[in-house]
Design a protein around this nucleic acid. Structure first.
Lengths: 240, 240
DNA sequence: ACGATAAAGTCATATGTATAACTTGCGGCA
DNA sequence: TGCCGCAAGTTATACATATGACTTTATCGT
């Protein structure tokens, strides 16, 4: 090994950059392992090690016999990975979605901090309600940096085919790879109680979530109130 | 490849069985990669692939230059992986621990179901309180199958050096590899409120947790009430 | 007795090669 | 036309080997 940096990591970073700068579009097939090996002047095994980590991180997807593809996040995948709510039988179900409000506001200090923005930078603020069979269960307030999502409007949000993350990916080339969620139990304030159709002061689950893209760059901040009468937050720890 | 079963998976399962039946004790060094390769009549690469998955699942731990060891769960590791609570600054801190009650009871239907036991099988029931600097924050009710933890008593629990999971491992050869946690927000009942020093009816986080060992065998059921005034439950989704 | 150095053992990285499993598309045959 | 089968291309598994990085132990000289 010539230098201290490991080759497979150098290859990995080079591949990430190719994906990040959309040199290969999402869903597109990337060059085969032997051809990448030639391009980087390393062996196929080294390429496989680099690509293997990217597959584990859901940046790439391998399909035997077909090729390797830039990950394209389907509704099902996003729901499975980033939607941790289950019903009484521990089953995941799709909620209906309704936008309550959309506006552009300056970031508060906390929002700016969480999104790594200058203070008072413009952000989109979206209020949003999710229901199961007409029963409201989750009230979301979403904050998005205007600089990353310039041109977003009501119509695009309402016309999205799947999840918010799918929208980000499809229209703004923003891929969410990870979320960090902070959960506490609080008493519902008047507005939240009204929206979730519970008595004011009822216990609700409050989730403060930051969504991260490549290199842990924050792209969305969401404050979420959950009525846990019929659904629960499912968390699995340990063993990958 | 002679047959359809993959060799590295066969090797992996053989290694798991060796660990499960304590053929190698925990913390002990297992044979080197070349010697295992000879023993299984496969190449070192195949051994590495099998061991790599076991390392990812925290069954083994590799140390360059020293060898590979059966995972021994330190207090720090257990805290990092299985203790998801953080303070206002997102820092993990160690709580103090106090046992409130210990008894042997027949399993209710729900407990028996969760622990895969026959109805009314005997279980240990432990009530337990955790505090930060004297401030009570987590009230636990633990259920353990007597069949797995025969001989457990007050004294052993109080004399444990670290976590409960460490106790299980050290004295009963039970390794917790994964937990599944179900979170909801509820109003504190009278006893819980008193223990956590909050007003009755205050919102608290209720966590229902099943701890699983090899092959997803359930070994512990815990019902946990958390005062989230000063701490929060941190959850990371996606990207390993 | 002590300390520096050498040697051996172990995991980590990397190469090169071979074969199996799988998918796709093309061409020939009925 | 339609379909079957085969060839080509791609990832998956496996082997054999070489070298680097790291740790532990032994050796040797002072």
């Amino acid at each position: 090994m010539p230098d201290s940096t490991k080759r497979y990591q150098a290859v990995k970073h080079a591949l990430i950059e190719d994906v990040r700068h959309a040199r290969w579009k999402r869903g597109e097939r990337i060059p085969s392992e032997p051809s990448l090996a030639r391009r980087f002047s390393v062996s196929v095994g080294t390429i496989r090690q680099a690509m293997g980590e990217l597959v584990a991180e859901h940046v790439l997807v391998r399909q035997q016999g077909r090729g390797t593809f830039v990950a394209t996040y389907t509704r099902d995948y996003l729901l499975n990975v980033f939607f941790p709510f289950v019903d009484r039988n521990d089953m995941k179900r799709l909620p209906e979605s309704r936008m309550l409000d959309f506006r552009k506001v300056p970031a508060t200090r906390e929002v700016a901090l969480a999104l790594a923005l200058p203070t008072a930078a413009p952000v989109y603020s979206i209020d949003h309600l999710m229901s199961f069979a007409g029963d409201p269960v989750i009230f979301d307030r979403i904050r998005l940096p205007v600089v990353r999502f310039a041109g977003l409007d009501r119509h695009r949000i309402e016309q999205r085919d799947g999840t918010f993350f799918g929208l980000y990916q499809q229209h703004f080339a923003v891929s969410v790879l990870k979320t960090v969620e902070r959960l506490v139990a609080v008493a519902a304030d008047a507005r939240t109680a009204a929206l979730l159709e519970v008595a004011p002061g009822s216990p609700v689950l409050k989730v403060t979530r930051t969504a991260l893209s490549y290199r842990d760059a924050p792209v969305e901040l969401r404050t979420r109130f959950v009525k846990t009468d019929d659904i629960a937050y499912l968390s699995v720890l340990g063993k990958r």
